[in-house]
């Protein structure tokens, strides 16, 4: 069964059609990359799937059930977690506190929530910072904290919105490794990213959108060679590395 099916998704903002009849689906355990130029509607797709705003028309099914109009918090309980492109940590709280908010999605007991949160922090190598205020973290750590919180809700599927933007190359490599480990844990990953090196290495399948429309899809090498993609997004000089 497909874990995610998006059928004819349309989302309008006033007169602007941000997403235009988008179709895509994902298998369990897959890593799907969504790329496209700035303003192509990538984050809008995420926001529709995560329940931030309802689609104007079309259908979204998560593990076989239609989730039309469901709110972010009920989707989270169903096993859909996300990160934000512009990180939103609870700045005045500690790293551990931040992650515990996530782990409370699966338990009511604070001690248990703390134990699970520490597990997640260890996995993401953030445990040494558990007592640091989230507002004092570096950008690389904040991005990782976003993933930690989302992971603490024990999702089946994770929407990652530009978790590598602003990272140094070595940090990007670490993040790629983390995402691969997440997949090994059986989590399906839907990722938006501008760093081609990372997304080409990670994705099983890539969807390219431009002005809200899908202009290409395929395995990374296929997409990178597609003339439409090169014209709209990658540029003539792009060489698959």
């Amino acid at each position: 069964m497909k874990i995610l099916e998006v059928k004819n998704l349309v989302r309008d903002f006033g007169g602007l059609r941000a997403v235009d009849h988008l179709n895509l689906d994902m298998d369990e355990g897959q890593i799907l990359g969504l790329i496209g130029p700035n303003g192509a509607g990538k984050s809008t797709v995420f926001n529709c799937i995560a329940g931030v705003y309802p689609p104007t028309s079309g259908e979204i099914r998560f593990s076989g059930v239609s989730v039309h109009g469901e709110k972010p918090w009920t989707l989270c309980r169903r096993g859909l977690a996300r990160t934000f492109q512009i990180v939103k940590p609870f700045s005045s709280k500690t790293v551990l506190y931040n992650v515990m908010v996530g782990s409370f999605a699966r338990t009511d007991r604070p001690a248990e929530a703390e134990r699970r949160a520490m597990d997640v922090l260890r996995f993401l190598k953030l445990d040494h910072l558990h007592d640091t205020k989230a507002g004092n973290l570096t950008i690389a750590h904040r991005k990782r904290l976003e993933i930690a919180r989302a992971l603490a809700t024990e999702p089946r599927m994770l929407l990652l919105d530009e978790v590598m933007a602003g990272l140094r190359p070595t940090e990007v490599d670490e993040m790629v490794k983390i995402i691969q480990q997440l997949r090994e844990r059986g989590i399906t990953i839907f990722i938006i990213e501008h760093i081609m090196r990372a997304i080409m290495a990670l994705s099983d399948w890539i969807v390219v959108i431009h002005f809200g429309r899908k202009i290409s899809e395929g395995v990374p090498a296929q997409v990178a060679a597609d003339e439409n993609v090169i014209k709209a997004y990658l540029g003539d000089e792009y060489v698959v590395s």
Partner: peptide, 11 residues
Amino acid sequence: EEPEAAMALGV
């Protein structure tokens, strides 16, 4: 503190 982030975490 961050209602949008909280909602996404199941709140």
